[in-house]
Design a protein around this nucleic acid. Structure first.
Length: 476
RNA sequence: CGGGCUGUGGCUCAGUUUGGCUAGAGCGCUUGGUUUGGGACCAAGAGGUCGUGAGUUCGAAUCUCACCAGCCCGACCA
């Protein structure tokens, strides 16, 4: 049932695919580039949804649903948007046995259809701000795909908003970026950097793109969420106009922001190890698993009784499971639940019951195996889960810091990127051709300019000006 | 789309060089039994158009041609 996982050190990519399939998060589907998200993986996604959906609603957004099919002409309306997306569009040309008069595009993102509707709904300054989110699937025909990180169809959430002023749109985009960062750190336990994308990496049609960037265990960067200021690009292209307080027609300022099932890839690659997944307690579908140990027929009833009683007590506050399969040895179960990343395992056998205790074993390996008095289980479980959650974040933060190098010259930048995996920071003067040069020489890209910019210094690519602090790294 | 590799039970593969009897193994699966504190064991059983099509041949998993699919590397990307 469970095969050996390729060690991370031997081949990170293989490790990643092995883990996903063996932990039953997802499986390949018959259509190239698409995947099936299995219940265990989907349950993780539901955790992500529940957490974020609550935050979106707390900040005044409402969910809606827009259709999958978009008239081809809509995509053409915003010049940069067309250019950015046309290579990866899937188009429906036939339906109902006939060729369609106008082809339908399967949404790669919903800016166009949503803004078309906004144009109908926004007539007065009293209609603003318009704060809409949708949970949906989107399709981008990718040449090279990877489970969760890049598949032709994926699940995501896309927020779309319209505001009276540029300032309001800016603070909306930043607010959502903060929510993403807060989610990554507090729920997923992954330390992230907030930044602004260079023009070269910006979303097609945006005036500013903000992102959160995380470091995976192979020291590559992963863009984990983006939030865009769209300025008036779309409101002009789609003729969204409202009458302001002075009865003058205005185009609103807009934002859009999204995170996808890619976050699951982030969790896998940020916390996993050679034993398998390591899930943050706040998102783990199963926070703890109870494993009865039954060495003989005599002990069977008392062990199962104790386990069931404990389960009844704990299930009120925790996502907890009993593994009472009797055709599988305990050792096998230990390995299997470790593979699945369950944060804490509780073993219960006759020896424990004699002492009125149980054995705790943490997935992160802290403390080894620990005997816990049975009437303290609930409290200790909470303490341990909290501790595991914060340790994951701490570990992730230290890992990123330990693998980030600052450089002061362009030569050093190139050298470091070529010799050392990880993030390389430097002061940089925005310049697309310099950026492309670095990419050609090192395969690394400018991930972002740090949002929390510390000081300034001469740019490594132009010593006559002050640069902005930037991160370069190889990325997913 | 270019370069490299691979298609044989659910999975990993052997068999292909040198065509030959009923296509094998391990794992997994099913049933029964014994087991259970770090990946248990015994017994019986189910499961295969050998990627697809054509060709050569008395005979093709094996040789030839075409096609299809997948993986890795490059251009594209949440």
């Amino acid at each position: 049932m469970v095969e050996k996982i390729t060690p991370m050190s031997k081949d990170f990519n293989e490790w990643y695919t092995d883990i996903i399939q063996q932990a039953q998060l997802a499986d390949y589907s018959p259509v190239k580039g698409t995947m099936v998200i299995r219940p265990y993986g989907y349950s993780l996604w539901e955790g992500v949804q529940a957490y974020l959906d609550k935050k979106f609603k707390e900040t005044g957004h409402e969910n809606a649903y827009f259709p999958l099919f978009i008239p081809n002409s809509f995509i053409q309306k915003e010049a940069e948007h067309v250019e950015g997306f046309s290579p990866e569009l899937a188009t429906v040309t036939h339906a109902g046995g006939k060729e369609l008069e106008e082809p339908l595009v399967v949404r790669p993102t919903s800016e166009t259809i949503i803004n078309h509707m906004f144009a109908k709904w926004i007539k007065s300054h009293r209609d603003l701000p318009m704060l809409i989110n949708q949970w949906a699937n989107v399709v981008r025909w990718e040449m090279r795909t990877r489970l969760f990180l890049r598949t032709s169809e994926f699940l995501w959430q896309e927020g779309h908003t319209a505001h009276k002023t540029q300032e309001e749109a800016t603070s909306e985009a930043l607010q959502m970026l903060d929510i993403y960062a807060e989610f990554a750190e507090n729920a997923a336990g992954v330390s992230v950097v907030k930044g602004i994308k260079s023009a070269n990496e910006r979303f097609a049609g945006a005036t500013t793109t903000y992102s959160i960037e995380a470091m995976m265990k192979d020291k590559k960067a992963l863009q984990a969420g983006t939030s865009h200021e769209l300025g008036q690009n779309f409101s002009k292209a789609f003729e969204i106009q409202y009458s302001d307080e002075n009865n003058e027609l205005q185009h609103p300022f807009q934002t859009s922001w999204g995170v996808s099932t890619r976050l699951i890839g982030m969790i896998i690659m940020a916390h996993g190890d050679d034993k398998g997944l390591q899930l943050p307690p706040k998102l783990a579908p199963t926070q703890s698993v109870l494993i009865p140990i039954i060495p003989n027929e005599d002990s069977k009833s008392v062990v199962l009784e104790t386990v069931n009683k404990l389960h009844e007590e704990l299930r009120e506050s925790y996502r907890i499971k009993i593994d009472d399969r009797d055709n599988i040895s305990p050792g096998f179960k230990f390995n299997e639940w470790e593979l699945k990343g369950v944060p804490l395992r509780i073993e219960i056998g006759p020896k424990d019951i004699e002492k009125n205790s149980v054995v705790f074993s943490r997935r992160d390996g802290v403390d080894g195996k620990n005997s816990v008095s049975i009437n303290e289980v609930s409290q200790k479980l909470k303490d341990n889960l909290d501790d595991i959650q914060s340790n994951l974040l701490e570990t992730s933060k230290n890992f990123r810091k330990d693998n980030t190098i600052h450089v002061d010259s362009k030569a050093e930048l190139i050298d470091t990127l070529n010799s050392t995996p990880g993030f390389v920071t430097c002061y940089w003067d925005e310049n697309t051709s310099d950026e492309i040069e670095i990419k050609d020489l090192t395969k690394a890209t400018l991930r972002c300019y740090l949002l929390d910019n510390e000081g300034s210094a001469k740019a490594v690519n132009n010593e006559s000006v002050e640069g902005k602090k930037a991160i370069f790294s190889k990325a997913y």
